[in-house]
């Protein structure tokens, strides 16, 4: 943009890093497809494995969709910093003059756009398949939208801590799951309470509070975790 090298802002590097990660995702399309396909396959196995009856599925739907969405986010969060760690880009990010806080937010948001966002957008389709009552569809999308962003940020903490380890699968789940559960509880209860005729504003407000907390605090934890991992 500008010829003056000093006028460069943190926002520019935020945008640039976000664009880079989106570009990388579109070069490796399986990164986008994997969590979404996992989500769709697992949910569509429930009518086959449990029962195809309308009443049973309608009862299970909010919980099943939320649990599988959570697992899709959990499985994908392992790769959040892996690639950058392996090729040395992570060192460049840590040593750049830009605040790590901003760079981490860019990376996590890009990651959410290729994992949480598609899951959120496809959830109504699976809701219909699971006979979720129509009034539950909007709360499902709303709660997944707020919830999956929090899940991505929280997953980032685990990913940052375990990126230096070769096999981090189980450890990552153990670190992250206790922090995931409140999101799951309020998320699925938002959908259930609308189906039962109560509003969901309370649950959505709590999810919003989680989101704000995750966006403001998790990047600090992720940054510290990355510094520890790179040191190893």
């Amino acid at each position: 943009m500008s010829e003056n090298k000093h006028s460069h802002s943190a926002f520019d590097s935020f945008v640039n890093l976000f664009k880079r990660d989106m570009l990388l995702a579109f070069r490796h399309r399986s990164d986008i497809a994997n969590p979404l396909i996992f989500f769709m396959i697992v949910v569509s196995l429930f009518p086959l494995g449990v029962s195809p009856s309308r009443e049973v599925l309608a009862q299970l739907a909010p919980g099943v969709i939320w649990v599988v969405a959570l697992l899709a986010c959990l499985l994908s969060s392992d790769g959040l910093f892996r690639n950058d760690f392996d090729d040395g880009s992570l060192e460049l990010l840590l040593l750049s003059p830009q605040p790590l806080y901003i760079l981490v937010i860019a990376k996590v948001l890009a990651h959410w756009c290729i994992t949480g966002l598609p899951v959120t957008l496809f959830a109504p389709l699976l809701g219909v398949m699971m006979y979720l009552p129509t009034e539950g569809l909007m709360p499902l999308v709303g709660s997944l939208f707020l919830g999956t962003i929090s899940l991505s940020f929280v997953g980032g903490i685990g990913a940052g801590l375990t990126v230096g380890l070769r096999r981090s699968g189980v450890l990552l789940s153990l670190i992250v799951l206790p922090l995931y559960t409140p999101v799951l509880i309020f998320g699925s209860s938002a959908v259930q309470s609308v189906i039962h005729g109560f509003g969901a504003s309370g649950q959505l407000a709590v999810l919003g509070a989680f989101l704000l907390m995750a966006v403001t605090l998790a990047p600090l934890a992720i940054g510290a975790a990355l510094r520890i991992s790179v040191e190893g």
Binding site: H6, D12, N16, L24, D87, L103
Partner: peptide, 28 residues
Amino acid sequence: HYLGHLPGVKAALTPRENLRWSCALEAE
């Protein structure tokens, strides 16, 4: 400016794209 043991070059990106993101950390 740090050039490490690992070059920090993304295999899936072209040289031009690689320079664009890494230089954006310092200046446009």
